[in-house]
Amino acid sequence: MQNFASPLRRTCKDIPRFFGRTNGLNSSLRFNSTQVDAAKQLNWPEYFEIRRRRRQWQTVFTIPCALVGFFGGSFYFGSLATDPTKPIMGVDPMIFYGGCTVLCMGAGYVVGPSLGSTAWRVMNRKVVPQIDALDREFYKHVAKNRVAAELQSATNPVPDYYGEKVGSLKQYRQWLRDQAKYRRKAVLPEE
């Protein structure tokens, strides 16, 4: 009876081989959607444009988060019962609660860019690996070409040490010129 078994009665590990033979599919054929995305590499102008949009997302999220922190802090600390005769840590309660409200706004201001960056990464999942790779390469270039930190002084800091203001190839070239100019002035001071 085993010799006459139906071809439909196969084990799970035989199924890919069975379909591979009957459909004429090559075993080297792969269905991977990331191969198409990886083939298109971003160039530097596209990278700087995407980087600019990411910073816009961070800025857009910063303002509402700061406002939420301010209003949340003012609602919370404004609703607390205060006794003006009992200072909190040696400070008038109204001044202390006002300071806490400003700290809540500052916390929102600090959290906003992180939320904006996270939202940007979720919305642009396809280009995130390429952007991360180009970020690493760009920051290697910045670290290699910037002025050494020991050459700066408190009155004369290095211009844009981390390359944060670079938004295009033209600005990158200007950044390189500024770094070289600063390096010359620091090493060979004019008398």
Rank of each mutant, 00 (worst) to 15 (best):
I131D: 03
V68A: 15
T82S: 11
V68K: 06
E150M: 07
F48C: 00
Q58G: 08
S153K: 08
E49L: 01
Y109C: 12
P159G: 03
A119F: 14
S117Q: 13
W120Y: 15
M94Q: 12
G163S: 10
P64W: 15
V111M: 13
A149E: 13
Y97H: 14
P45H: 00
I95C: 02
E46T: 02
S79W: 09
G73L: 09
Y161W: 12
A107G: 14
M89Y: 13
T62H: 09
F48T: 00
K165M: 10
Q171T: 14
K165H: 08
A119M: 14
H141L: 14
V111H: 05
D92Q: 09
T118V: 07
A154H: 07
M94P: 00
F138H: 10
C100G: 09
A143K: 14
P113G: 01
R136S: 13
A107W: 04
G167A: 10
N43V: 06
Q56G: 10
R125S: 15
S114L: 15
N145E: 15
Y161T: 06
L134P: 00
Q130Y: 08
L103T: 07
F61P: 07
L42C: 05
P113E: 02
T155W: 06
Y76N: 05
V68E: 04
W120G: 05
Q41D: 13
V128M: 13
P159V: 04
G112F: 05
K126Y: 07
A119W: 11
A148N: 12
V111C: 09
L67T: 08
R121P: 00
P45I: 00
K165I: 02
Y109F: 15
G98E: 08
G106Q: 01
P113M: 02
K170W: 03
V127M: 10
V68I: 15
L42H: 09
F71W: 12
Y162G: 09
A107P: 04
T82G: 05
M123T: 06
L115P: 01
R121I: 00
L103A: 14
Q58M: 14
S117F: 05
A66W: 01
I63A: 14
V147H: 03
W44T: 00
